[in-house]
Design a binder for these strands. Sequence first.
DNA 1: CTGAAAGCGCTAACAT
DNA 2: ATGTTAGCGCTTTCAG
Lengths: 360, 360
Amino acid sequence: MKARARGSPAVPPGWRPATAEDIATAAGVSVASVSRVLNNTGRVGAATRERILKLAAELHYAPNAAARSLASRRSRTIGAVIPSLENLNFAIGIDRFRKVLRQQGYTLLLASSDYDNDKEEAQARAMAAHGVDALMLIGSSHNAKALGFLAARRIPVLLTWSCRPAAAGKPEPGALPCIGFDNFAAATHATRYLLDLGHRRLGVIAGGTVDNDRSAARVGAVAAALAQRGLPPPLIETSPASYLVSEGKAALHRLMRGKGAAAPTAVMCMNDILAYGALLAAAELGLDVPRDVSVTGFDDLDFAASLSPSLTTVRIPAEAIGNAAAAWLVDSLEGRQPALPPLLVAELVIRKSTGPPAAA
Amino acid sequence: MKARARGSPAVPPGWRPATAEDIATAAGVSVASVSRVLNNTGRVGAATRERILKLAAELHYAPNAAARSLASRRSRTIGAVIPSLENLNFAIGIDRFRKVLRQQGYTLLLASSDYDNDKEEAQARAMAAHGVDALMLIGSSHNAKALGFLAARRIPVLLTWSCRPAAAGKPEPGALPCIGFDNFAAATHATRYLLDLGHRRLGVIAGGTVDNDRSAARVGAVAAALAQRGLPPPLIETSPASYLVSEGKAALHRLMRGKGAAAPTAVMCMNDILAYGALLAAAELGLDVPRDVSVTGFDDLDFAASLSPSLTTVRIPAEAIGNAAAAWLVDSLEGRQPALPPLLVAELVIRKSTGPPAAA
DNA sequence: CTGAAAGCGCTAACAT
DNA sequence: ATGTTAGCGCTTTCAG
């Protein structure tokens, strides 16, 4: 069916969208009744209800969102500002978020911050001006000004993705609600797995950690796990551009270059893209994975299982987060006072890119 | 800086966003003047203008979007419905689109259709109800009902991504404006390149082509180019789930299995993810790329250059499309009657995954 | 150049 | 159970 600008016979030329008043007039009732029926609020006789519903359908009635917002002081619109759409994991989570929202009659306003808290604040203000009923933010590190502003405007905020254990389930008073998983715990788990395999010298490849508490928590967890066992701190390579395989590649080269026996026997990458780059670099260096060096990722993107060797990585519950966040926010806005779900789990998926160090 | 729900001293507890009337009162003028100043419409004395602007800043005034829309019958909101956010190329294009829009004071309403024109129609209607001033759609194949509806509601529609040559630059009367590139031409170019290398038996791995004119055009172009030189038609493998490397992998296996000397010497994949899968499958089959089989992709995603062998692919101007589409739409809504840019170019990027067939 | 006034289409008391 | 009546905050004639 080809595109065409005109020609549908369904609608006369000088057409104006039907209003609630049109329906009221046609049905011989008041706009109040129309509003009641269409919003399922207040009692209305079964007969008139039928009539109104029928007319609404016939006239292709769709409520004017602006008028509705203005009168009700609710926009049925929810904002989300995420670091970047180019991170597939966020894209997947947001897609679920939007779908659940729409099923409940809400619309998503989306913005991205490029991993910059100041931009995030600007976006949050723009969303406030657009009258969002609530806002979803990624992570737990945000500008105090932004949060203060949102609180003052009484705009509910839900943090997602990364939670400290205490913030999920039942947040301590004064803290913002959060739905997500514990990045620190997940990275700790992965680190211990490597340590239990016999590794002693670990390398870390991370994206920026500045306005990124997820990444910061993960890197911190590795260091902490190592320290706890009295091992030397990890060799850390960070690069601001976190989602380029070329960055992962370059970082592994830096990590191994001229280190000789001091080179790490395992390298933990803070996302799968970087891990992929690392795998590529290992091949270039003639290093066998996992014999010469083990590599882990984070995210479990589609391709992780297909790499060779297949990638050991931490699976992030992006869809679950999107679903739960949308559901909770809507329930919350509708006054149902939903309980915050417990911390979600990020599961370590063990595949072929990790093994005991050759020397062990 | 840690999250906290309260505590910013900047805003008193029982605070209500400032309205135009607040400013008017404070400045000792009427709301009409305030509106005029804030919208740069109608003449206002320099002195009062100053005063109003100053007050607006002090009171952190932000116009109420709903009221503005209701009164002006323009929402300064633009909708976009794309097939899927999980396609990185769309994510990149949309991100640019949104950024340009925001710079111009417009807000993006985003939805996805899962490559299903009926869902697209539903989303378009939802956007209409939300009062979008214009709508951006991907590709040139859409439900007539949806298009008719949009035309009846006088909602300007801009097609993007894929254009037939005639639709860009200056569309023929009655056709919708389009900003994008010519998929048919791009695929034709890639096919001829392979043919010139000496290939005679081509394979094609494509995602779904049902509500996807981009994919359909590409596949059609391959067949046409082959026919034009009197060669046998391509072996085509399509799979509905187009963005999984596992699909690409399976498809290449099907393409080569038991074909012997009749197996294609070159396989064209309609996106880089599928191409990546194909490369993986080739390795599994012990096939050398490009000696035993050449592989091409489409998109030129970040990783394409890093694969081994690096991938020959068609670079899609996603960012340029996003930029141009937003700019044109805004100019158009503001009555500036912008000219439609000429067809954009999708460039063939030749790398190492293609070469002459072994037999040649 | 500026103010007054009339809505935009809908919701939400308050009546009946 | 249904109608009446006010606005929501802003833009926009139309006067002055």
